[in-house]
Nucleic acid binder design. Structure first.
Lengths: 263, 263
DNA sequence: TGGCGTATATATACGTCGTATACGTACACC
DNA sequence: GGTGTACGTATACGACGTATATATACGCCA
């Protein structure tokens, strides 16, 4: 179910397929002269590419969650056998890293679409845009945490490293020495990631429960203990959004970057 | 490979088994009167319990990482078939939540061992202890992020909810109104989680590489682009520790909790 | 002391997963 | 027009989570 609905159906040959099923037309098909597309002109017509694979994977995760992402399933999504994907990602883990990359590429796109600023304002713009990207792909966000812990710095996707570089450039341009730069960088990254995780965590709920008091299953909480949590739960359920992010960021920057006049 | 090497081989019967294999002695075993331990006196002798299961799971994750944790493997660790674990956790996901719980129980233990403080000092003590627990179980930390995003508030393990309650109590005791309380709570949680994730992320490396310049695989980084990252990488590799955590926390508290005199 | 209900652990089986390996097939280039 | 190579398929294997049915031992009441 759910058409993939994204690629332009552009194929280098005009033939428009013999049906929706990509699969079984096996063997010499009764002497038809038509070479009857095989092997490489597959992939729901048009060759595979890393971009197509990652885009499809991200779409699948967005629609059905991380646990729905398997090599076989993704292959099917692309009209291809699972093993075909191994040309474009070394394995499942690399594919997950690819998703992290895809998220950061989207971040770069969005940043390029807006107008750049300088110093602290640009840090805020990056943070806000990052926040937007995460909200656009909430089910992929856990990857930002898990892959971050699984992959050493230099093996992170290039787009991630470019983001790091970008932030470092802003900090050093503001006149911070290296020690300060690293301290602010860490705080910036930690706050961004933590904030997004907490915010998304608050949004997890049973979607077919409309009463906000029960959206998070409050009735399951021990009634006598946890009184504060119980009364605050509603407020915890819909979080602060961009303002909270910006406010905390300012607080941290004020604290950690006490040198550069522009920060 | 890799003996389990942990349980005391204490058995309540003196018979020393017919071999290392727990399994196959089927049916009426030829009229031996010895009841020849079966079923429930298994579990590397002594019954199973949720505590034992979780402790063993956490140990396994600590030693071999999250991907080594499977029902079968954990069962083997406990001298038991995989399905036996389903009495103590509804399934794999519940088991992972159990690990989150175990982490928080350890946190509670450590907190109980120290002397409690009040207000901001207690928030710092909790944060620092949380940090310690995470460093003690680095490979389990990703669970804090992923399960947080997977489980609605009220379904989180009780120990997690108790921690929430504890923090909320500190905030309201300091005189914050509910809105402020929730804002500070979110900021506190986000900072704690983000900081730990970033700090642990910096520690992931190839352990059999001693040259610190290469520990993170810096040689793989594009040489011309990313110059700042390259030069800062070493500093990014060993992070700030407790001081950075405390400093950021103070910054956030100063910003978000501008009411109570005790915060 | 004996018998039984219930908690406990096993045994078996199914479908899916990641992926190693071997094989086809079509395109680019001479 | 033939051929090397990049691309995708086919098949297979072992491990995984877990549903279901079964065997075993302990607590309790007589």
């Amino acid at each position: 179910m759910a058409e993939h609905a994204d690629g332009p159906e552009h194929v280098d040959g005009p033939e428009h397929a013999d049906g929706p099923h990509p699969g079984r037309g096996e063997g010499q098909d009764g002497g038809g002269t038509g070479p009857a597309r095989r092997a490489s002109d597959r992939g729901r017509y048009g060759r595979l590419s890393r971009e197509r694979v990652l885009a499809s994977a991200l779409g699948l995760v967005d629609r059905e969650g991380l646990s729905a992402l398997s090599m076989r399933r993704l292959g099917a999504e692309l009209g291809v056998e699972a093993m075909a994907l191994y040309r474009y990602a070394e394995g499942k883990d690399a594919l997950l890293d690819g998703l992290v990359e895809a998220l950061h590429l989207e971040l770069e796109e969005r940043l390029a679409a807006g107008e750049p600023r300088t110093g602290r304002a640009e840090l805020h713009r990056i943070a806000g845009t990052f926040h937007d990207v995460c909200l656009a792909h909430p089910r992929a966000v856990p990857l930002l945490a898990t892959r971050m812990l699984a992959v050493p710095l230099a093996r992170r996707p290039l787009a991630v490293l470019r983001l790091h570089e970008r932030v470092l450039a802003l900090l050093t341009a503001a006149g911070l020495d290296e020690e300060r730069t690293v301290a602010v960088f860490d705080a910036y990254t930690a706050w961004l990631l933590g904030y997004v995780l907490v915010e998304l965590g608050a949004m997890v709920d049973n979607p077919e429960e409309t009463d906000p008091a029960l959206r998070l299953g409050l009735h399951r909480m021990p009634p006598r203990e946890l009184p504060l949590l119980r009364s605050a739960a509603a407020a915890l359920a819909d979080p602060a959004g961009q303002e909270g992010l910006a406010a905390g960021l300012d607080a941290l920057l004020d604290r950690f970057a006490t040198q550069g006049p522009r920060l």
